[in-house]
């Protein structure tokens, strides 16, 4: 069961070491962090400062060496790989620097894929819930056409990603990120592959997802110009939070 909590993400004294080649590298040290709905948190930091590692921990892709991570009030440390996958399918959305759309699927199928995963996860969770609750869960899932319209890519639904411009691909990726009605969006360098104006368009879209849809969005980037769109900015330097600006 997923318990509701005021914080979407909560990290308490989290450290992360990478072990490899006989040596241990500490990448994150004693990180404490919270994110709430309707926030766009910008995670700034130079290359190698640990931004991606931070997002990986939040997504449950890797386990912290020390400390606790809670998503929607649940300690994900105890989650099995299957349960983590279900959590991502139901409540998390991703936006990547290189879009990571699936080239052999159409725009529509790319978006549908996430909804399929969510359907599987809901069925799995549904074993312990009533039919009414399941129905309610699927009610506010946006229709694919609605989603495409919202991001101005309705005309592209039957195209394959290689037939799209970079900016269009990132808009498809953003549509995919909320296709399961995710409450937490993790974006790693979402503007880095784009021209300046396209990048600003994308950060504006992400901001809307936070402020208008009441989602929590965490954007990792080294582009300081994005700060004016963020509800708060956190700076990472050598694995530690240096400054937090609300």
């Amino acid at each position: 069961m997923i318990m509701e909590d005021a914080f979407v993400v909560e990290l308490a004294k989290v450290s992360k070491d990478y072990v490899g080649g006989g040596e241990t590298t500490r990448v994150l040290t004693d990180i404490s962090f919270q994110a709430s709905p309707a926030e766009l948190t910008l995670l700034l930091g130079p290359s190698g400062s640990g931004k991606t590692t931070f997002l990986s921990l939040v997504a449950g892709f890797t386990q912290p060496t020390a400390g606790d991570i809670r998503l929607f009030g649940n300690d994900i440390h105890r989650y099995s790989a299957t349960k983590l996958a279900a959590l991502r399918a139901l409540r998390l959305g991703f936006v990547f620097q290189s879009f990571l759309l699936i080239d052999s699927l159409t725009v529509e199928e790319n978006i549908e894929l996430v909804r399929t995963f969510a359907r599987f996860a809901r069925k799995r969770e549904g074993r312990g819930r009533s039919g009414e609750e399941i129905a309610r869960g699927s009610e506010h899932r946006p229709q694919v056409t609605e989603l495409l319209d919202r991001f101005g890519i309705a005309g592209l639904r039957r195209r394959y990603p290689p037939q799209l411009s970079q900016g269009e691909r990132q808009r498809v990726a953003i549509a995919r990120a909320i296709a399961n009605d995710a409450q937490l969006i993790l974006a790693d360098e979402p503007t880095a592959s784009l021209h300046a104006d396209q990048g600003l368009e994308v950060i504006e879209l992400l901001k809307h997802l936070a402020t208008e849809d009441n989602r929590s969005v965490i954007v990792a980037s080294h582009d300081t110009r994005l700060a004016e769109y963020a509800t708060r900015t956190v700076t990472l330097t050598s694995g530690r939070f240096k400054s937090v600006r609300e």
């Binding site: 991502r88 894929l113 995963f117 969510a118």
Partner: peptide, 16 residues
Amino acid sequence: RRDLAVMKALGAPPGY
């Protein structure tokens, strides 16, 4: 591999 990793990241159910 990239596609399959993306599917895992997006929450593909076990066995998918």
